[in-house]
């Protein structure tokens, strides 16, 4: 029982069997998290550094909690307030941290491919991508998958629509890779300006510019955040206009013939991509996603820590 990879850089590199293994292991960790003592000693010989070159609340806390629940030692690093501002390179920073005998690196970076770059230079350390630029956010896709399975029983044949800023969303890309590998049907919806060209051909996904039609088609709607910080040109005229065309509202959901599952990776821009009625409705599993995130990250850390080479 082992993952086929030593790092978790992206869902792109995982086999379907890896994904199944992570998700089934996460289920056991979720059970652990329901116990009076929510902690196991599995990683007590492991030290993990959380390297965050970009802001994060949920992912960072979730990883840190997962590490602590596994009894690992953790060090936190934030780019602001560190020697990065003095001009130290990424590789130098990491090498310095690793010389303090660190076994695993959890890393978020605004540059796509930063964890892949590190993995080439640090062959003996497991690197876990916690989001790199507009490339991938693998643990988010895994916890989304876990949450869908929890609601619907499986991914096979399920219809999932990703709504919003597909172009700048690493959550979207990781989700597309994962859902396609696990046999789900994927539809993308959002303004044409935020839809990558050729995405339909590249991934065999559906694209639907009419939100009402997309919602009527799907079993699950994963609503993405409008990433204002990643846009250096105006891709839609105003937030209000975006909300009118692609905002998921309670009213829209009530008009549907069936109850669909509403997901959002957070943080929510209330009143932009989703309104409060939809986000706080019974169909919404947004807070369950956060809860599942800890269990899924525990599974990833546990499964990667088992690699023998780590200790050599």
């Amino acid at each position: 029982m082992q993952l086929s990879t030593k790092h978790l850089l992206g869902i792109k590199d995982l086999l379907p069997s890896d994904i199944s293994l992570i998700l089934s292991t996460a289920q056991q960790f979720k059970d652990v998290l329901q116990r009076p003592i929510k902690k196991v000693p599995s990683l007590r010989d492991i030290t993990i550094v959380n390297l965050f070159y970009e802001n994060s609340t949920r992912t960072r806390m979730s990883f840190e909690l997962a590490e602590k629940r596994l009894s690992a030692d953790t060090i936190n690093f934030a780019a602001s307030g560190s020697s990065v501002s003095k001009g130290e390179t990424l590789l130098d920073t990491v090498n310095n941290i690793l010389s303090m005998k660190v076994d695993m690196v959890v890393m978020r970076h605004s540059a796509s491919g930063a964890p892949h770059f590190l993995s080439k230079h640090l062959p003996n350390t497991s690197i876990i991508n916690a989001g790199d630029g507009i490339n991938e956010h693998p643990t988010q896709a895994l916890l989304d998958a876990f949450s869908v399975i929890e609601q619907l029983g499986s991914l096979e044949g399920k219809k999932i629509v990703l709504i919003g800023d597909i172009m700048h969303s690493r959550v979207a890309l990781s989700n597309i890779y994962l859902l396609k590998k696990m046999g789900a049907e994927v539809m993308l919806s959002g303004p044409p300006t935020l839809m990558p060209k050729y995405i339909q051909e590249a991934f065999e996904v559906k694209v639907e510019y009419n939100l009402k039609k997309a919602l009527a088609w799907c079993d699950v709607a994963n609503v993405l955040r409008i990433q204002l910080e990643r846009q250096n040109q105006v891709l839609f005229s105003s937030l209000r206009e975006y909300n009118r065309a692609f905002g998921v509202t309670g009213k829209l959901l009530n008009e549907l013939e069936k109850k669909i599952v509403i997901m959002h990776p957070g943080p929510i821009n209330r009143g932009v991509e989703i309104d409060s009625e939809a986000a706080d409705s019974k169909q919404s599993v947004i807070l369950k996603q956060v809860e599942n995130g800890v269990a899924v990250r525990m599974a990833v850390l546990y499964l990667l820590s088992g690699k023998k080479e780590l200790n050599n």
């Binding site: 029982m1 056991q28 000693p41 820590s305 023998k308």
Partner: peptide, 20 residues
């Protein structure tokens, strides 16, 4: 009771956790 996460040979071999 599943004891997978409490084993002392985790660094040698990972075992598949089962239901508790």
């Amino acid at each position: 009771l599943d004891i997978t996460f409490y084993r002392d040979d985790i660094r040698e071999e990972l075992h598949m956790p089962k239901e508790t």
